[in-house]
Design a protein around this nucleic acid. Structure first.
Length: 286
DNA sequence: TAGCAATTATCT
DNA sequence: AGATAATTGCTA
């Protein structure tokens, strides 16, 4: 099974002798490929080895080149890259917010990369992706990655501050984030990426796009649960409207503030308790 | 140190 | 099952 986020027991900064040990520890499983992932689930890890001429490494920001179009013999670009396979996997990370593990290898020329072996450098999010003409003249796909600074991203306000960066805490946090993503995806798939309000499906170059909206929000102070009965599948517009009280939902799924009702799959149980929470805290009560 | 072939986990 | 791959280690 593919592991997204940190691998338990492997803190950021861990070093590995070669690609085989990286694979054995589950940090980056393919022995040669730079991108680990599938075109359904997304990418879980990438390696920066300097193999592609168009790569850029600025530390917290990485411009990563997709795979494909290279000659097996010379390593030069000889064909256009396509948004398929592991390139598509990275595109899905961008659309879904799935983090990707970044490993820097000794072959990479940047001063940040290790002199020998491979080093796990933590989680990045895929900020954007696009195609362009590479140095070779062939089309390449590029991915802009931004480092996730987890101390800032977590809601640890009510917790006693720890003196040093606690890797155990980070693991817990990331696992929670990843649970969100998995559930979110399952709800989107349940509706085939159709908005439950307007039934719009948004087709992108990486496939269908929808957003998972939590009815009672996660995190302090709302502490809504991370469960399917608290998640809706919405288009971005209706997601924003819902989060900012543009409409709300009655227990019988009639929309409040918009015409019509919320479409619901029979097998999708939506807990009225969370709908009530949303009405009480977010609905416009004029 | 190039060049090349063997190797192997993974994805489709 | 076959193809792929941002490797590795051997040979000259």
């Amino acid at each position: 099974m593919r592991v997204f986020g940190h691998v338990v027991g492997i803190p950021e900064g861990s070093e590995f002798e070669n690609r085989y040990t990286l694979s054995q520890y589950g940090v980056h499983r393919p022995l040669q490929a730079g991108i680990s992932g599938s075109q359904d689930e997304g990418a879980d890890s990438i390696v920066l080895s300097g193999g592609y001429e168009d790569d850029k490494d600025y530390g917290d920001v990485i411009i990563y080149t997709g795979h494909g179009g290279r000659s097996q013999v010379t390593g030069l670009q000889v064909a256009d890259q396509k948004l398929t396979r592991q390139n598509l996997a990275l595109a899905l990370n961008c659309q879904r917010g799935t983090p990707v593990r970044v490993i820097r290898g000794y072959k990479h020329t940047s001063p940040i990369s290790p002199k020998e072996g491979y080093r796990y450098d933590g989680l990045y999010r895929v900020d954007s992706y696009w195609q362009e003409q590479g140095l070779s003249g062939f089309v390449i796909w590029r991915f802009r990655l931004e480092k996730i600074h987890e101390q800032l991203a977590t809601d640890t306000v009510e917790e006693p501050p720890s003196i040093y960066e606690n890797s155990e805490r980070i693991e817990i946090t990331i696992q929670r984030i990843m649970r969100d993503t998995k559930l979110a995806l399952s709800v989107k798939e349940m509706y085939n990426f159709e908005c439950q309000v307007c039934q719009i499906r948004i087709l992108t170059n990486a496939g269908l796009y929808a957003e998972a909206a939590h009815i009672q929000p996660l995190g302090m102070p709302h502490n809504g649960p991370d469960s399917i009965d608290n998640i809706l599948c919405l288009c971005p517009n209706h997601h924003v409207m819902f989060d900012f009280g543009g409409f709300s939902i009655a227990d019988d799924l009639t929309l409040i503030g918009l015409e019509g009702g919320l479409y619901k799959e029979p097998k999708h149980f939506i807990n009225p308790r969370y709908l009530q929470y949303h009405r009480e805290h977010f609905a416009d009560k004029i």
